[in-house]
Design a protein around this nucleic acid. Structure first.
Lengths: 208, 208
DNA sequence: GGAGGTATCAGCCAAAAGGCTGAGAGACCA
DNA sequence: TGGTCTCTCAGCCTTTTGGCTGATACCTCC
């Protein structure tokens, strides 16, 4: 029986170490490489061609997880990417799925859940933690309130405290477009100002 | 030679698992128990009397790490507490030290740093990650950046997303006064806009 | 009793943000 | 092929915010 090869991408050594220890207990799963950054992750994915990439979203410096997933998808369609992160923010979920993630696990997930997600991923099954699933269901019930990927991306920069001009420069779009997106975001979040949007995003969306 | 007994308290299984794997490589350190919540941590600390408690601050539900540290100190337990967390927020650092923590490590710390912190802790030495130390030094060097009580009060309302007018109404002061306070807050936080102030307050000051 | 810190307020001006309407391009789908 | 969604952009106008300068009042501390 072929073992499932896995690449771990997480900037926290303890998390990589913990995942490795957990996955090491499973005879059919093998961690073939580890990376501490998105850049390293891409290089190692190319080098080892693992069946599954387990990826954190928040990486201290450099390329973040979402960008790394996009790059992976752009280069090679074979690897299934599992997001493995601390927060179940709506925006992150939307962006990760949009980027091409196969599953979305939270770091407090039970070991069996993690194993199942990895085994499912190689078979093309989407697996996600219960809180993540429930968020998605709620979004299905209220489709009007779902942020588009671009809006989510903008929101994630908004909560960094950037101005409209800075947002435009960062996303290579005009300030007018930024304002359009912001207006839509405000409507969906049910707020009127950017300050309230930031506050809401950080609390309700769990962003930070 | 006596081994240093350690209790792990972290709500993430992978982190506990990773720490255990890392610490297991050291002959003089032994993990004697693990807890996934502050409450369990207190109970296990009493039961096992470990030399060192490695504690996460953000625990999903129930008692958080700071409260658990306070409880431990209140029971005048002998254990040295090492904080082991993801964020180096000023407010968390101050609160943890105030609660009686012996050290403050970030989750991206190198293994040697973690080992050294545990060994130091049993000898009464304070050890902290470099970014944490630099934050503390910065606070000591720049007492000017400490918010006055009124400013802190205003900031706590600011991060709710209120406008200047609303802030004035809530605090029974004129909008002009609100603007004065805000200008001072921005200067102390090192930002230029309210959006950045909110973002900074929530991250660096740990407010929410 | 003066110095320094804190909290209060005013007015003026420039910049930023927000509300509104309209519109074109590309993707996707029935 | 036509409708819908998303992303993009523009112009116009009002409101809000931020920068600056200066002022009064209270408190504490030396």
């Amino acid at each position: 029986m072929n073992r499932i090869t896995v690449l771990l991408v997480d900037d926290h050594l303890v998390v990589r170490s913990g995942l490795k220890a957990l996955l090491g207990t499973q005879p059919d799963i093998e961690v073939v490489a580890e990376a501490a950054s998105g850049e390293d992750g891409l290089a190692l994915a190319e080098q080892h061609s693992p069946a599954v990439v387990v990826m954190d979203l928040a990486m201290g410096a450099g390329m973040d997880g979402i960008e790394a997933i996009k790059q992976l998808r752009r280069r090679n369609a074979k690897q299934a990417v599992l997001v493995f992160t601390t927060y179940d923010s709506d925006a992150d979920i939307v962006r990760a799925v949009d980027a091409g993630a196969m599953g979305y696990l939270l770091k407090d997930a039970a070991p069996e859940e993690i194993f199942a997600a990895i085994r499912g991923a190689v078979q093309g099954k989407s697996v996600m933690s219960a809180p993540v699933a429930s968020r998605l269901f709620q979004q299905l019930r209220n489709p009007d309130e779902v942020l588009t990927p671009r809006e989510a991306e903008l929101l994630s920069l908004l909560i960094e405290g950037l101005s409209n001009r800075e947002l435009g420069q960062r996303l290579f779009i005009s300030e007018a477009t930024v304002k359009t997106h912001l207006a839509h975001i405000y409507a969906k979040l049910g707020v009127e100002t950017r300050a309230a949007a930031i506050a809401t995003a950080i609390r309700r969306e769990g962003m930070r």
